[in-house]
Design a protein around this nucleic acid. Structure first.
Lengths: 131, 131
DNA sequence: CAGTATCCCGGACGATACTG
DNA sequence: CAGTATCGTCCGGGATACTG
């Protein structure tokens, strides 16, 4: 996919992909792809995320122009997050990966089980060794 | 993309994506997508990767059934890495992301510059403050 | 409600040295 | 050549407390 002369492009791709490929980013984009959400709604939707990480990830996505942040000056404050045009466009290839995983995750898990069988996977038995 | 009832699917996707989205994995897959390579060739191709991370990442990809490891029992040893069928199939949606980034990274960088302008980006000036 | 500020721990990762 | 083993560091990210 990457020949020698466009190595810098490859770096750019993997760089952005690393940013976008962290634990929470995709989940957030998938949620916002369904409908705009407020901060606390997002927190509830993305199970397991801490307040800190939600804030940080949203800031990063906003910075990248993927997510739009809209503040309604009410009391109490109401902040809504939605995908930008760029974000919507980005969610298309993401769905490509998503559906690939849907179709192939069984095969991946099978490959893992197979691999673990052939290679000991005896890590834990080092700890508890009875008799 | 993810409605409430298939939340577990979302988790699976993001889980596997997190594994596949780390700094080196994509670069390696992109290289092997061009042609099979030996360990040292890969190390040279993927600029900046440490021997340790190359080994670890390749093991993980092998475990997931994405990469095939072939040992030729010569002296000195010759080990060749290539994409499996699953790996080739996976590289398709990855190319989808890749070409999206190619087409849109300028816009992302622009968004970042814009964001950084509006929000101070004064971090460093806290350190050096003249007059 | 929607954040920011701090503390702190475990794991990811690089550097280095050694081996079949 | 193609790894494994070990050590040390750094920082991602959770927990908690505080604020406009």
């Amino acid at each position: 996919m990457c020949s020698a002369y466009d190595h810098n492009k490859c770096t750019t791709v993997s760089e952005i992909l690393a940013r976008l490929g962290d634990k929470w980013t995709i989940l957030i984009i998938m949620q916002l792809g369904e409908s705009p959400l407020r901060f606390s709604e997002l927190k509830r939707a993305v199970v397991g995320i801490s307040q800190r990480m939600l804030t940080l990830t949203l800031r990063a996505l906003e910075r990248d122009g993927i997510v739009k942040r809209t503040v309604y000056p009410t009391v109490p404050p109401r902040v809504e997050y939605s995908l930008t045009e760029l974000g919507i466009s980005f969610s298309q290839p993401v769905k490509g990966i998503g559906s690939w995983v849907f179709q192939n995750h069984a095969e991946i898990h099978a490959a893992r089980a197979d691999f673990d069988l052939r290679n000991g996977e005896v890590e834990d038995s080092k700890l508890i060794r009875i008799s």
